[in-house]
Write a protein that binds this DNA or RNA. Structure first.
Lengths: 185, 185
DNA sequence: CCTTCTAAGTTTAGTGCTAAAGTCTTCGAG
DNA sequence: CTCGAAGACTTTAGCACTAAACTTAGAAGG
């Protein structure tokens, strides 16, 4: 998948067709597991496209929005070094350098050397950057609320709890108390 | 994101910390909604990294695995044109041309002109490609089974059903019988 | 002090993608 | 027929990313 984060394809088979096809080609496949995994993947791809469309309307890319989010999440005064940003976004420092170049050119962030330690660089959110973040956040939360509209409060809770359990399994990469799934980072 | 598919960052805050931080910065955020959405995003990023590692051990990239999966899903005789592949994978035809170049060079697929209509090109899975797909599929289904290990059969069913409902909402982009969420493709 | 080491960013080379222009068949109309 | 238009790739230009080499500031040892 990949792709991450990979992208959507209008003319792909329906989820049920896809699962049926996999079962034809690969006998020992648990359809229940496949349903969860495939739905997860598709849902994410669609959501990423939707986010991209929304923030594009604000004149920023999905990539730039990620940077804005990370800076805001770091809390006031909304400052992080390129290296730290790169780690949190899962990019190489080299990619971060260029992304910051662009964003500084657009006035979303500033880039300055740390006066106390001149090896370090400080990337700081500008007011304009914070405003963009807020606008994007409003669009995103409306979209997300809309997405979950058909689920009751209880269902949302159950879904969140189940997803968090999966996430824990993947993030802690279990100390192997029976299950594998090691080495994920 | 976009992607989708975006990549993981080891040193990011925990999910709970992240949600708490968002609430500090953005008052009218529903933490339940945010939990679902953020967990979805993270889970997917982690899974994509895991898939990438696994298929890399077989000497193929995540991108190549996607092509193999699409060809197998099309059913015997495992043939599709570059345009159709591109649509299903959400790529431009140009990207598909290059991907097929590489994969043909590695012997995973063949590329031939259609004798009945010489404008068309036929990409066909080779035996080697099919073998790689099978090996990758085995690794993936083991990994997925492992991921869901902590969930009971009932929980898996509930999770799958809830995800499918979200997916339906996003894929059908509702004819607007009250809710928005239009224009997703 | 003066090396040497290490950390933080940047630069370079090369890959894979998109958008847009180009090529080559096939089909349809006059 | 033959000319024009459409369809299905391919090619070109340009962008964003990774991996690896490079630069420079501060830290550690002698």
């Amino acid at each position: 998948m990949s792709e991450s984060t990979e992208e959507p394809g209008p003319s792909e088979p329906s989820l049920d067709e896809q699962i049926a096809a996999y079962q034809r080609e690969f006998r020992d496949l648990d359809p229940q597991v496949e349903q969860v995994v495939s739905a997860l993947g598709r849902l994410n791809r669609r959501m990423n496209v939707a986010y991209g469309r929304q923030v594009a309307a604000l004149g920023i890319s999905n990539a730039e929005w990620e940077v804005l989010k990370t800076l805001v999440l770091s809390g006031a005064p909304y400052r992080l070094g390129p290296g730290e940003l790169a780690k949190r976004l899962g990019l190489t420092p080299a990619a971060m350098t260029h992304r910051i170049d662009r964003m500084a050119g657009e006035g979303l962030v500033t880039r300055d050397r740390d006066e106390n330690n001149r090896v370090r660089v400080i990337v700081e959110l500008t007011d304009e950057g914070r405003t963009k973040w807020l606008e994007a956040m409003r669009m995103a939360s409306d979209f997300e609320e809309d997405l979950l509209q058909d689920l009751t409060g209880d269902e949302r809770g159950v879904l969140g709890e189940l997803l968090v359990r999966l996430l824990r399994r993947v993030e802690h990469a279990q100390p192997d108390a029976g299950g594998r799934l090691t080495d994920l980072d």
